[in-house]
Design a protein around this nucleic acid. Structure first.
Lengths: 328, 328
DNA sequence: TCTATCTATGAAAACGGTTTCATGATTTCG
DNA sequence: CGAAATCATGAAACCGTTTTCATAGATAGA
């Protein structure tokens, strides 16, 4: 591999001048510029990024944290972030926390060793107090997940609203026995707020839900199937169910059909996210503007990095949209 | 940030000795080791990875190329690769080519600038001759896609077999009018071989397909919907359709139901990949062992990097499995 | 006991760039 | 016309590690 020294020698100039040409500094005559360009061409020279990183103390790399990339919500997020980052000359390191606190902390050490210029978290597994110390090592942002104590830029949706809109819709369809099922992450404001929204809508309508109707630990299609069985076994069955993701909703839908239930007559289902599968099976759902969120977050992050802005709270709130389909 | 020099000073030793402790070299007395450890602890020291990269000429980073991360086939692949890499101390840079030749080449420049130790390609957009030159800059592997001319390790499935198994299944179900629909990538052996398998099965059964039945450019659910409309408009309609992915199959299925067609009586559909959606909508499909592929590929790659093995052709062939469901 | 080998450590070079500083040539301005 | 500002270039310092080389003491083998 040719180094900048080789180029300099071939061009009959100093490393400094070559570096100037590479970095488009002013104060290089066109003639020398041409000499350097030719030499670079001839030697097939490419600057070594490790050296550059070391000297410039920046990596042009951004880490994105997701629980699992196979979750369509997060893969859409990453798709958009990746493309946007690439357009602006950044590359993306993917960190899958696998819903594990340890794994999240492991990956956070990345920032310490200066392997990335910044971090975007789309979910949080640990208490914020465990994450906060890492802010010393570089900018951190939240996208999707949010937290009161986190003094960082945050792109989010008010999940109280999300839970409210969905539940309200079910109530308007005449339901009073509405189950609620979600994942179960103690550190997640998304989870707790959405539940608050559900309760709020019920309270407004003067409905008191049975405790039995609150189902947790539901993330995947298979969890959805399990949730259906749980519902089917209940003495006092709900007539509708609010779910935390389209995947879980799809699992419920699938198992309900297996058992010859009629959707929505025997059970109305509302999903969350508006993933492709929702359209496929005719699922009413609450769309989150993933693309906008991802772009806003990545844009902010690059801004912060490039202008060395101090990390401070700055909330960007986006809006939901209810997508009515056949399942309610 | 504390540097190795700071640690050395605090411990009253040389940088060399500190480095030895960090890298677990022999020939350090336990006493000095303890001194160093304490100093590192006290200063909250973490080695700077840029410096280390520069000196060691390796990055502990592997780039994975996929067309789009939102395609479930590839997101599953990346999920497994990411976890496996992380276990072995490597991190993963995600490169989405967006089915674009330019984008693929752009990302290939990464390897040139030594930003990664190796490359795993799961798809190929350019002719191999355009990719080959990059082999000079570091190890490249193929996983899923394959190519005769590529002298690199390859984890793959024989897609002739894939096309054959699916088509053969439809023939065994009594179909003789079988449409074929797929993406359309000229550089892709996966695409061309699968088509060969389709033709082979038909020929064996003495069937000559109508040219009208060969549908291309189908990647997504929406493409599937379009494909259904095309089929519905045909004079000589097929009674079954072989598709290149479960997503496309799902699109066909969805639109067929919309038009009140009966699946499989009016139209049998076979998908490819066995993604979660296949189980959901009861799609017969051909399962690819994604997890195994991903692990084999990442394992090989790390081996190659760590033992500095020369890049040469080495084919690891895995097998399909037909999953029979209600759509055929 | 004398040499060869092994153990333990540090000084200095190396990795490949960018940035600072110095210097001289050229241009601008009063 | 002389001083100040601007332009153009290179030498050397610097980023923070790892690796090579040198050295000296300890141990083993003859």
């Amino acid at each position: 591999m040719a180094t900048i020294q080789d180029v300099a020698k071939l061009a009959g100039l100093s490393r400094t001048t070559v570096s100037r040409v590479i970095n488009r500094h002013p104060y290089v005559t066109d003639e020398k510029k041409r000499l350097v360009m030719n030499a670079m061409e001839e030697l097939n020279y490419v600057p070594n990024s490790s050296a550059r990183r070391l000297r410039k103390q920046q990596t042009e790399t951004i880490a994105v944290y997701v629980p699992r990339i196979t979750n369509p919500f997060f893969s859409q997020m990453v798709e958009v972030m990746g493309n946007y980052a690439s357009e602006r000359g950044y590359q993306l390191i993917l960190c899958q926390t696998s819903y594990s606190r340890n794994q999240e902390i492991n990956y956070l050490e990345l920032l310490k060793t200066k392997q990335v210029d910044g971090l975007i978290l789309t979910s949080i597994e640990n208490e914020w107090s465990n994450i906060e110390p890492y802010m010393n090592y570089g900018p951190i942002m939240l996208c999707n997940e949010y937290n009161d104590r986190a003094q960082v830029p945050t792109v989010y949706l008010d999940q109280i609203e999300g839970g409210y809109i969905g539940t309200r819709h079910l109530i308007e369809q005449g339901h009073t026995r509405i189950a609620y099922c979600s994942g179960d992450n103690h550190a997640s404001r998304v989870a707790s707020d959405r539940y608050k929204g559900y309760k709020k809508a019920l309270e407004e309508a003067g409905i008191v839900p049975s405790e039995e109707w609150i189902l947790t630990n539901a993330y995947s299609i298979n969890d959805g199937k399990r949730v259906f069985s749980d519902i089917a076994k209940m003495n006092e069955r709900p007539t509708a169910v609010f779910t935390g993701s389209d995947e879980v909703a799809a699992g419920i839908w699938k198992e309900a059909l297996n058992q010859k239930w009629n959707i929505p007559n025997d059970l109305a289902i509302i999903g969350f996210d508006d993933q492709p599968v929702a359209d496929l099976i005719g699922l009413t759902t609450i769309r989150q503007p993933i693309e906008k969120m991802a772009q806003q977050a990545m844009g902010q992050m690059i801004d912060i990095i490039q202008h060395k802005l101090p990390s401070k709270k700055k909330e960007i709130k986006l809006d939901f949209e209810l997508i009515k389909r056949r399942s309610t």
